[in-house]
Simulated scan of single mutants.
Amino acid sequence: MMSFSMRRSAVIVSVSLLALGGGALSLDRLMAGSDLEPEFTQPVALGTIEETVLANGVLEPARMVNVGSQVSGQLKILHVQLGQSVRQGDIIAEIDSTAQSNALRSARAALANVRAQRAGRLVQLQQARQAYQRQRILINRSVTSTANLETADAAFKALEAEVEALEAQIVQATVEVENAESNLGYTRVQAPMDGVVVAVVAKPGQTLNAVQAVPTIVVLAQLDVMRVKVQISEADIGRVHQGQDLRFTIMGSPDKPIPAKLEQIEPAPSTLATDSSSQAGITGQPASQAVYYNGLFTTPNTDGRLRPSMTAAVTISSGKATDVPLMPWAALTNREADGRYRVKVRSSEGVISERHVRIGLTDRIHAQVLEGISAGEHVVLPADGELSSSADLVSM
């Protein structure tokens, strides 16, 4: 009886050990299988893709003028204030006109003096002409001498020259009067265009000195049309050209993009204008310094929400395609010398093969497939170690 129980226990222990051994073997196989990286795929599907260039810009009025004084003097009256709208020809400011009024009176007096001298010389010239004609008559009758004729002729021609000189002085004095009248008119500063006063630089009572430079009194701007100056990096300038569609947002309304078109691209960086010479600006720029080219476009500002010096986030559309096969950008691995990429494709039977594909537009999420893969096929997303460098993808 005891021996039967012992034999039964031995059998149970043996079966348990076999079961444990089989379980351990399955776990090892499972652990061994866990080392295999799972494969993730994504289908190639038809869709719309847009390739863009991102840049920052600054808003400024499409037209802005510094209104200053062309004459020196004390600013007596300022007729405008900050934010006021003005029309072309409106009086902006008045400058003390005492010096200009006196200069005009002096110029007019000088002109009158020269005209009086000319009138006196004309009377003398008439007398000299008559004397000369008399001597010619007398010399023909042999009543007078040749010396008297020559003397009368010389006096006549001298007075004739003096009259011509006085006529030239009259022209010069007339110009002086016109200049004095203009200077007197400059004491009443007028608005050169319609606009809004965006800055008041001078104050009443301030002395303005216009000898070396034109002092600014106010700054006028037309705010109904704004100009945006966009800084485009040298890495993106090759994908940007005049006439491209774009959109921009401001910080206060990031969810309301404003459409526009790129109107102009400046041919050289704006830093060249600040250098002492163009050659120094080209050869003397450090290699590590970023280079930006200004793109320009205008946009209406009928509601007035766009203001000078605002920052604009600009998105330039460098290309757009609709209903084209799109594959995930992350599936692009090594780039070949001919510009194509090697991509792994899994068939419906689960077989993985390698293809060479050529891509077009990309938004860094998807890429347009030009050749190599058709819509409906599944591409394999590579592991981290197989991803191509971002520099290769950006340089497309």
Rank of each mutant, 00 (worst) to 15 (best):
N66T: 09
R8Y: 12
M193K: 02
L36F: 00
A147T: 07
V86M: 05
K229E: 11
A367F: 03
V351P: 02
G385V: 11
A10F: 14
L104C: 07
L149Q: 08
L246S: 03
Q169W: 06
L262Y: 01
G319A: 00
L138I: 10
G22E: 10
L18W: 08
Q231A: 09
N102W: 09
Q126P: 00
N301K: 05
L246P: 03
F248E: 01
V189C: 08
S97A: 15
A165N: 12
Q279I: 15
N301R: 06
Y292L: 12
A290D: 09
I92P: 03
Q42S: 15
M310Q: 13
S9H: 11
G195D: 03
E263C: 04
V15F: 15
D90E: 13
A165P: 06
R335Q: 14
V67L: 02
E377H: 03
T311C: 04
R87T: 11
P204T: 05
Y293M: 05
A55Y: 02
F297K: 00
S347T: 14
S277Y: 07
V114R: 12
Q206N: 08
A313H: 08
Q222S: 13
R335S: 08
S26G: 05
L332I: 05
L306N: 08
A168S: 13
F248L: 07
G205L: 03
L36Q: 00
T274M: 13
Q244F: 00
G205Q: 06
L78W: 01
V198P: 04
T146M: 12
S97V: 09
G73R: 02
L381Q: 07
R129A: 06
G339K: 09
G350Q: 04
E178D: 15
K320Y: 04
P259R: 03
L159Q: 15
P61Q: 02
N56P: 02
S233N: 05
V314Y: 01
Q117R: 12
V230I: 08
S318G: 06
T52A: 03
I91M: 12
R188W: 01
V218D: 02
T52I: 03
V44C: 02
A62D: 11
E386K: 04
R141Q: 15
D28A: 07
L82E: 11
T187L: 07
G319F: 03
T249I: 06
G21T: 14
Q285V: 13
S353L: 00
Q135F: 09
Q190P: 02
A235D: 13
G304C: 00
K157S: 10
I137N: 12
T315K: 07
Q124L: 14
M1S: 14
E164Y: 11
N301W: 08
E349N: 15
S276A: 14
I250L: 07
V214F: 05
Q279M: 15
